[in-house]
C-alpha cells in the first residue's frame, strides 16, 4: 500500500485542488436542482456529506469481505441504506426541509461522488484516511452548492436564508431561481474557478 497522506491534506485537497464539482464535474444533478436557496443548498450539502462519510467508513471497514464480482451491488446497498437513514433523520428534524428537497434526497444515491469515493478510494484505504478523504469531498461539494445557493438566492430573490436584504424596491432577478438560472450560475462558477486556479498555478 502506498504511503498514506496526512488526513488534513486529504480534506483540503477535496475542498479546493481536487474539488469534485469544479474539477471532476461530478454530482451535477443535485448541485443544479436544489441550489435555489441557501437553506436547500446547506441541507443538501450536509446530507450528502453525511452519506459520503458514513458509507466511506463502512466500505473501508468491510473492504476485505466484499468480493470483487459483486462490489458495485454491495456499495449501492450500503449507500442506499445511509441515504434512507438520512432521509428519515431529515424528516424528523424538519418536515419543511424534507418537502423542499423532495425526491432529491433519495437521489443522493446516484450521486457519482459517493459511488466514486467507495470504488476508487475507500475500497483501497484504511478507515481514517478514507473518512478524511470523504470529509474533504463532502466539504468540496458543500462549498460548491453553497456558492450556488448564495448567488441564486441573494441575486434571484434579494434575500439570504429567507431574510430580505435589499428592501422593497429591489427588483429580484427571478431568472436565477428558475432552472435555467442554475445552468448560468454553474457556468459562471466554473469560469471563476478556472481563472483562479490558473493564477495560483
Amino acid at each position: 500500500m502506498e504511503k498514506e497522506a496526512p488526513s488534513l491534506d486529504l480534506i483540503l485537497k477535496g475542498l479546493w485542488k481536487e474539488n469534485p464539482v469544479f474539477v471532476q464535474l461530478l454530482g451535477m444533478c443535485p448541485l443544479l436542482a436544489v441550489s435555489n436557496s441557501v437553506k436547500n443548498a446547506l441541507s443538501m450539502g450536509l446530507a450528502t456529506t453525511f452519506v459520503l462519510v458514513f458509507s466511506a467508513a463502512l466500505v473501508s471497514l468491510l473492504k476485505r469481505l466484499i468480493p470483487k464480482e459483486v462490489r458495485m451491488g454491495c456499495y449501492i446497498l450500503i449507500i442506499a441504506s445511509f441515504v434512507t437513514i438520512a432521509e428519515y433523520v431529515m424528516q424528523a428534524i424538519s418536515l419543511e426541509i424534507h418537502r423542499s428537497l423532495g425526491a432529491f434526497t433519495s437521489l443522493i444515491v446516484v450521486n457519482c461522488i459517493i459511488l466514486g469515493q467507495a470504488e476508487s478510494f475507500s475500497s483501497k484505504h484504511k478507515l481514517l484516511p478514507s473518512v478524511a478523504h470523504a470529509l474533504g469531498r463532502g466539504a468540496g461539494f458543500s462549498l460548491a452548492i453553497l456558492c450556488m445557493g448564495i448567488i441564486r438566492e441573494v441575486v434571484g430573490k434579494g434575500s439570504f436564508f429567507e431574510i430580505p436584504l435589499f428592501g422593497e424596491q429591489y427588483q429580484a432577478w427571478t431568472l436565477l431561481i428558475l432552472p435555467s438560472g442554475g445552468f448560468f450560475v454553474l457556468a459562471l462558477l466554473l469560469m471563476l474557478y478556472e481563472t483562479f486556479s490558473k493564477e495560483s498555478g
Binding site: L65, V70, C74, L77, I78
Partner: peptide, 10 residues
C-alpha cells in the same frame, strides 16, 4: 455470505 452480512448490517 458477504451480501447477507452487508444486508444484515444495513
Amino acid at each position: 455470505g458477504s451480501l447477507t452480512l452487508i444486508s444484515t448490517i444495513s
